[in-house]
Simulated scan of single mutants.
Amino acid sequence: MHPVIDAIPPFRRVDILATQAGKAYCLADVAELCRRAGLEDIDPDTDDTVEWIGGTWDTWQT
């Protein structure tokens, strides 16, 4: 998870396995992008395999 991008609305760019997967505007978007990538068992707010840069799972504003 990249840092929050100051846009309207703010978002985070999501990379999965070094490939850009899309934009996330909330935690549910992160979970959906993981699911689409075949990572259905990941819980983005508790799983240590998710790296949050520039904040934690609940940081969505700049």
Rank of each mutant, 00 (worst) to 15 (best):
1 M>Y: 05
1 M>Q: 12
1 M>G: 09
1 M>F: 07
2 H>L: 08
2 H>F: 11
3 P>K: 01
3 P>A: 06
4 V>W: 01
4 V>A: 06
5 I>V: 13
5 I>S: 11
5 I>C: 10
5 I>N: 08
7 A>G: 03
7 A>P: 00
7 A>D: 13
8 I>G: 06
9 P>A: 07
9 P>Y: 09
9 P>S: 10
10 P>M: 05
10 P>L: 09
10 P>K: 08
10 P>D: 12
11 F>K: 06
11 F>D: 02
11 F>C: 05
11 F>Y: 12
12 R>Q: 08
12 R>H: 03
13 R>C: 04
13 R>Q: 10
13 R>G: 09
14 V>P: 02
14 V>E: 01
14 V>F: 03
15 D>K: 12
15 D>V: 03
16 I>W: 06
18 A>D: 11
18 A>G: 05
18 A>Y: 08
19 T>Y: 06
19 T>S: 13
21 A>H: 13
21 A>Q: 12
23 K>E: 13
24 A>W: 00
24 A>P: 01
25 Y>D: 12
25 Y>C: 12
25 Y>A: 13
25 Y>T: 11
26 C>A: 14
26 C>M: 15
26 C>K: 15
26 C>Q: 15
26 C>D: 15
27 L>F: 04
27 L>V: 07
27 L>I: 11
28 A>M: 11
28 A>D: 14
28 A>P: 01
29 D>W: 15
30 V>Q: 00
30 V>D: 00
30 V>F: 07
30 V>T: 05
31 A>Q: 14
31 A>V: 03
31 A>L: 10
31 A>E: 15
32 E>V: 08
33 L>N: 07
33 L>M: 10
33 L>C: 08
33 L>H: 06
34 C>M: 13
34 C>A: 14
34 C>R: 01
35 R>S: 14
38 G>W: 00
38 G>A: 01
38 G>F: 00
39 L>V: 04
41 D>G: 02
41 D>E: 10
42 I>A: 02
42 I>K: 02
43 D>S: 11
44 P>R: 01
44 P>H: 03
44 P>M: 03
45 D>L: 09
45 D>C: 09
46 T>R: 14
47 D>M: 07
47 D>V: 09
47 D>T: 10
48 D>K: 07
49 T>D: 11
49 T>W: 11
49 T>E: 12
49 T>P: 06
51 E>F: 07
52 W>F: 08
52 W>I: 04
54 G>D: 06
54 G>H: 08
55 G>Y: 02
55 G>A: 06
56 T>K: 07
56 T>D: 13
57 W>P: 03
57 W>K: 01
58 D>L: 06
58 D>I: 04
58 D>R: 09
58 D>P: 04
59 T>V: 11
59 T>Y: 02
59 T>G: 04
60 W>K: 03
60 W>Q: 00
62 T>E: 15
